[in-house]
Write a protein that binds this DNA or RNA. Structure first.
Lengths: 332, 332
DNA sequence: GGGTCTTGCCAATACGTATTTGCACCCCAT
DNA sequence: ATGGGGTGCAAATACGTATTGGCAAGACCC
């Protein structure tokens, strides 16, 4: 910028006034033009680090996720990255497999990060002190302590239950992670609540918890299959587990949806590419990421506008090939 | 840091010497201890932005990828993020769906980034001028202009060809992207070279190009099916395309591997979860990302050590359910 | 006991930009 | 002509840390 100023025959502060396009900048049009021309001539690019130091804003967001390889998470990232990037913010990616939430937050704080998006992190796990003074938005999580963007997980569980019930299933099971994430808890609660309303109680051996991955779904399904009293309808808290379960059923010689119906949750792209195609509850992952980023940017730029107005994003049932009438089993 | 210095009764520069652990720092042990104690007392955290300004190093890497949602890319990211993070570097994620490579590089340069990892970006597309003065490592790409870490893509193509040939297939096809990425070009070249060596020429209608996604694989497969003279063995340049093709075959009423054999490439986790399980060539994605990050860190920290020593990472065939003997078709 | 060396610290400066303050200068009204 | 108000710019300062140079005080030599 010194070079620009020298070339335009003005002082550095004047060049700064012009280039930062200050609102109440009183600069003569001719001078302004000279500075802009000089900047264009030498291809001036501002040093964001220096700007960050004086303005005490890094124009960067932290994006903390449990696992980049989870397709749902990848969708969330895509939505958030796009919004942030278009607003001129950089995205610092932090994977929890590398280090814990608290440690990542330390690093981000040291970098004077403007805000943090927390994806798929259970609110109870959050170290409140590590978050002190950090602007944060939770993704697909609800908390009265921090703003968040969430999907209607309760409805997701209900939709899955209603779908299976309407197909005539009475022998039902739930497969989900041991996570304390709000989204997972609510999917489970919505499901079991609807079962209770239909007069069905979920035995504990039909409530299987495991890691929210294909492997976890596989292991949970194995336990369901060997546990006796095989269920005919299964709701899996996410599609990865559902696919693991699906695969395990096929390996065990079961046919879907004849012998067993499976309903997943999230509707990742993959759900349409397994065989049979997975019936699931669609969660708008990209939209969650995008809205969370937008909310965070508002919190950063529009002062203490704490009106998070957390609205639940709607979910919907996508009936495909892994769910079918329970009577099929009886008649076959 | 001023507070730390005041608390320890020393000047700010002295505190800096202690806290930055300078090699030829001549500080009395007692003083050093006082400073460290003071820093611990008030929970001092360095301001990385200010450090970046003086040291002219941001301790941050750019990671430029075509699409976070591609599982192969997600694996690469995981590997790179882990290495960078453990070395104390932040990772700025840039998705090409947001803006072009050149624009991302501008932004990264303005942020005084220390280096850039370019994942799955064709070397020919690279704007050489936008890369001037930026330390960069290409991932799964080869170039005599920039250092890189790549897999043995030629061998991958050969392995696929040898596998299909050894199963007796003679009616072969290739499905790949129109990308000019080295990895894809070599996978194709290795495949076709082996076919030629076996006296088989690939007709143009059996060389289908499309987007490297499931949809692309689906569309390419549809063209193969409707083009007459259906091939019995197909090599798809990545697993996503292979899965799209697989799915399309199943929908068309074909059985795998009885009617058609498919070999994918990359061995993403998903390959084991489609039905039948996908035969594929395993590419060490995470290792690629990790090695690329390590090489970049070397270039950054160890001076102009241009000895990139680009070694090709080995690939291997993983035979699963989508490939079988060609004679099966004849006898069925 | 005066000189050279070493040790341990601080003062000064730099990094590149933003912001505040103050000073010329000109225009116009009285 | 003179004072007041506005305009356009530069000087000074700040952001938080790293680095250089130099200055005291002590150790050591003859």
């Amino acid at each position: 910028m010194h070079d620009v100023a020298a070339r335009a025959g003005v002082s550095q502060p004047t060049a700064s006034l012009v280039l930062s396009n200050h609102p109440h900048a009183r600069v003569a049009p001719a001078t302004r033009a000279r500075v802009l021309q000089a900047a264009a001539d030498i291809g001036y690019q501002p040093n964001v680090v220096a700007q960050s130091l004086t303005r005490r804003r890094s124009f960067a967001l932290g994006l903390l996720v449990p696992d980049v390889r989870n397709p749902f998470v990848a969708d969330v990232i895509t939505g958030a990255e796009r919004v942030a990037s278009e607003a001129g913010y950089a995205v610092l990616l932090c994977d929890q497999s590398t280090r814990g939430v608290a440690q990542h937050l330390e690093v981000l704080r040291a970098r004077q990060i403007d805000g943090v998006l927390l994806g798929a992190v259970g609110a109870r796990d959050l170290p409140a002190d590590a978050l002190a003074g950090v602007k944060v938005v939770l993704i697909d999580e609800l908390s009265d302590q921090w703003p968040s963007i969430a999907s209607d997980a309760l409805a997701a569980g209900r939709l899955a239950a209603d779908h299976l019930l309407s197909l005539g299933h009475r022998e039902l099971a739930y497969v989900g992670p041991a996570s304390d994430m709000h989204a997972f808890r609510m999917r489970e609660r919505g499901f079991t609540a609807r079962l209770r309303a239909a007069g069905i109680a979920l035995e504990s051996r039909r409530l299987q918890r495991d890691w929210p991955t294909m492997e976890g779904g596989r292991d949970a399904m194995r336990r369901l299959l060997t546990g006796g009293a095989r269920p005919t309808g299964i709701f899996c808290a996410n599609d990865l587990m559902a696919i693991g379960a699906l695969k395990t059923c096929l390996r065990a010689g079961l046919a879907l949806p004849r012998d067993v119906s499976i309903v997943g949750c999230e509707d990742i792209e993959l759900a349409r590419y397994v065989t049979p195609e997975l019936t699931t509850i669609a969660i708008p992952a990209r939209e969650l990421g995008a809205r969370a980023a937008r909310l965070l940017l508002q919190l950063i730029e529009d002062a203490p506008q704490r009106v998070s107005a957390t609205r639940l994003l709607p979910v919907r049932l996508v009936a495909r090939g892994t769910s079918g009438s329970a009577s099929q089993e009886m008649t076959s």
